[in-house]
Amino acid sequence: MSGGAVLATSVEQQEPRRGPDLPRAVGTSRATPYLLLSPGMLWLAVFFVVPTLMLLVTSLYTGSLDQGYTFEFPGHWATYSNALTEYWPQFLRSFLFAGLATVFCLVLAYPLAYFIALRSGAWKSTLLVLVIAPFFTSFLIRTLAWKTILADDGAVVRTLNSLHITDLLTWLHLTEADRILNTPLAVVLGLTYNFLPFMVLPIYASLDRMDGRLVEAAQDLYASSWAALRKVTWPLSLPGVVAGTLLTFIPAAGDYINAELLGTAKVSMIGNVIQDQFFVVTDYPTASALSFVLMLAIISMVFFYVRRAGTEELV
């Protein structure tokens, strides 16, 4: 969740595609790749795959923490229906907030990425460092800083109040009673802020790969700046946009730090519920079921989204 993760995703973007006819490295045997793989893969199998299965098993337990949990075939599936009946608003809110944050990120990131990739000239690498620099500080400390900025008697809220913008926001049900902190807007703002570089860097990478003369060619062929953006730049940056939206949406949907620090219990997200169920209520089956549903929901959404956005051959 830090600047580093963002760096990695941008690196991944730039990996060139290679043909299938890569020659086997000279002087190695058939067993070599498996020997190299096995320690890392074993680690992932034991501490990622097995826990995911364990999560499923735990969600089907019956009993309680005090009396002990037991698993009876075929499992206590009622936990799922109970959990979903009770917590569907939090699920909905999570996806709504994450979706809003993703849209805001896109709106903010596209001009910035465009500027860095196509207009910044010699400043390019400096600007790239500036994009990730704020994220060198701890996620939590940054989010806490927003608490200061958006404080009820702070300069930002007072300015917005005097401009009657908070009235407008309240009318839109984004804020309440002339304040921003502890409202849905604050949570979405925090999510937008925290995942912005995940959107900027992939879009930057795909715009940077684009041949700048294509825009000139479009203008030469009677496309105004706006038409060139719509017909050439935007379609060519789609792979970056798709990657960016996924990298923003997935962590945002599971996040509970922003809802906890910038919101209230009234605007809690599914992450808050899972964490509460584990540590406050200690209802492990319900917590596991919610967690498992979140995973399935995100996987199916991602799958659906990639299918829709990705089937069209993108360059």
Binding site: E216, A217, Q219, D220, L236
Partner: peptide, 18 residues
């Protein structure tokens, strides 16, 4: 450029790849 009665064949073409 988009209002000129002029068109260009670009060096190495600049064809729209998409």
């Amino acid at each position: 450029p988009y209002k000129r009665p002029v068109n260009t064949v670009f060096q190495s073409y600049a064809l729209f790849p998409h």
